[in-house]
């Protein structure tokens, strides 16, 4: 019998659980049970207080563009694309790509909504621009 020190979770560490859920189209992030800080990317300990007592939850999916850049690429290689930092409504920031509008039209402060694209058994978190003038950002 091994001691507690050697008991690993059968489903794997947080990073593996995140990826497994994402591959099924399910976007979940972690929150500390002790200090209640929500955080991203998935990890074993709360980066705010060091606690190992963390839980998963489904964020609203709403977020806002914090910073943005258009990576220039030749048209024959697929053309320009967006890289953005998104602040989730729950607080955490993450890198993603905003789709649905031209890369150059992605603007800081723009409301976006999360979407999981699944292909080849892998999930990729993307964001769609929300048409703020119609008030659908809420």
């Amino acid at each position: 019998m091994s001691t507690d020190d050697n008991k690993v979770k059968p489903e794997g560490a947080a990073a593996v659980m995140y990826a497994a859920r994402l591959a099924e189209g399910d976007f979940q992030i972690q929150r500390c049970r002790r200090c209640e800080t929500a955080f991203f990317y998935p990890r074993e300990l709360c980066p705010a207080c060091g606690s190992g007592e963390v839980e998963w939850f489904a964020p609203s999916g709403r977020g806002q563009v914090y910073a943005t850049t258009t990576v220039r690429r030749r048209a024959e290689a697929g053309g320009d694309y967006n890289v953005a930092l998104i602040d989730l409504e729950e607080g955490p920031r993450l890198m993603s790509r905003v789709e649905g509008i031209e890369p150059q039209a992605v603007a800081i402060g723009m409301a976006v909504r999360a979407r999981v694209a699944v292909s080849d058994g892998q999930g990729l978190l993307l964001f769609d621009a929300q048409e703020t003038e119609k008030g659908s950002a809420q």
Partner: peptide, 25 residues
């Protein structure tokens, strides 16, 4: 860096571009 690489930022340049975008904003 599985939470950044999939989005193909041109590193390190794109990181500094993001910082510049924020400073300009």
């Amino acid at each position: 860096q599985p939470y950044e690489h999939p989005y193909q930022p041109m590193m390190p340049l794109s990181a500094y571009a993001l910082a510049a975008s924020r400073h300009m904003h």
